[in-house]
Design a protein around this nucleic acid. Sequence first.
DNA 1: TTCCAAAAGTGACCGCAGGTCATTTTTTGA
DNA 2: TCAAAAAATGACCTGCGGTCACTTTTGGAA
Lengths: 197, 197
Amino acid sequence: MAKKQQEKSQQTMDELMASAVELFGTKGFTQTSVAEITENAGYAKGSFYRHWDSKDELFLQIVERKLREYRDARDPKVSGAHDLEEAMNIIWDFLETIINDRNWSSIFLEFTIHSAHSEILKKLMNKSIYRLSNQIFADLVRAHVRTDFPPEKIGALNTALFEGFLIHRTLGTQVLTIGDVRRAAIALALANGAKNG
Amino acid sequence: MAKKQQEKSQQTMDELMASAVELFGTKGFTQTSVAEITENAGYAKGSFYRHWDSKDELFLQIVERKLREYRDARDPKVSGAHDLEEAMNIIWDFLETIINDRNWSSIFLEFTIHSAHSEILKKLMNKSIYRLSNQIFADLVRAHVRTDFPPEKIGALNTALFEGFLIHRTLGTQVLTIGDVRRAAIALALANGAKNG
DNA sequence: TTCCAAAAGTGACCGCAGGTCATTTTTTGA
DNA sequence: TCAAAAAATGACCTGCGGTCACTTTTGGAA
């Protein structure tokens, strides 16, 4: 059997990824070094690069997995919504759970800005598997839009407000609560997407 | 006279800052090294640290100067506004000029996220001289708010939407135009701050 | 004009980062 | 038992922000 070796390799990847999730989640992306990730998992630095080409690549994999988990918990709920307001409320219940997932939302934000340095990363970050953004929200909201305002823009404005709040929160500013932003985002979506403004 | 030496020192600072403004404005904060800044200005790396304690400190000085310039051009206009809508429109004329100032808005954004790694920097970035944010917009809008919705929150929501759009734009996503965001921000401010919603 | 203290300017050096790769260790199946 | 293949290693590379002992320039007092 040529199985054991693959299994060992997979286990190493899992251990390294678990170590990375722990460290990224505590210290953020930039502040966590590859050497720390491997050391924390009991390997040498070189082992990391047998499994991933770069720190970026590992982070993208973690993001993908986390977003998939979030969505699996969310999508069934949203599809049961009856109108735009209900859909938006479910979306914001979801965004609030993300906000409460340690400080991952801030770390996503950090990586999003980091990705601006590379054209390749930028393109990747526009894909829906790496972003809670645009297309996704648009799709969730589309069925309930009663005006000719593009659902994509409703989704993008929602993301903008959410990510703007993340910046606000990252800096430790206290003026806004997530409730404030939630109300504003829903009001905005309804003004644009519900019959009579 | 002990003047010439001070003058020379000031000239060096000016030259290094001009070099930094040029490079930051082209390549961003992280991608510009201190060695590049000094080399581009014709000095050795060590000279930089005679005038600033860190790359961060120089960047803050540049931000402070740029924001002062922006505001000097804006404040007289806003103070002539007669109602909330007019004030918001003037504010957004101003935000659009910032967006059009090469890619400085994205670089501000980059540094804002960068500052999250240091408590000291975070505190500094909450000061109005380093941010186009919260307090400033609140003050500009306060006189025209006709509800009991806090002007600070109107200002902060406006900033959130603007900075969220910056992220969107930095990633090269095409869904939103600045016009879309402007309309949304003004609608939001009026819904919260004008009589009858 | 001489001279020396203070200021400006220099660049080798430090620690640490992400990433590479020749080498060693372990696993596997014949 | 053994050799090929895969996994693991850590010294090493380049480049970063930042330091500091040193050299050069400057300016005023003797």
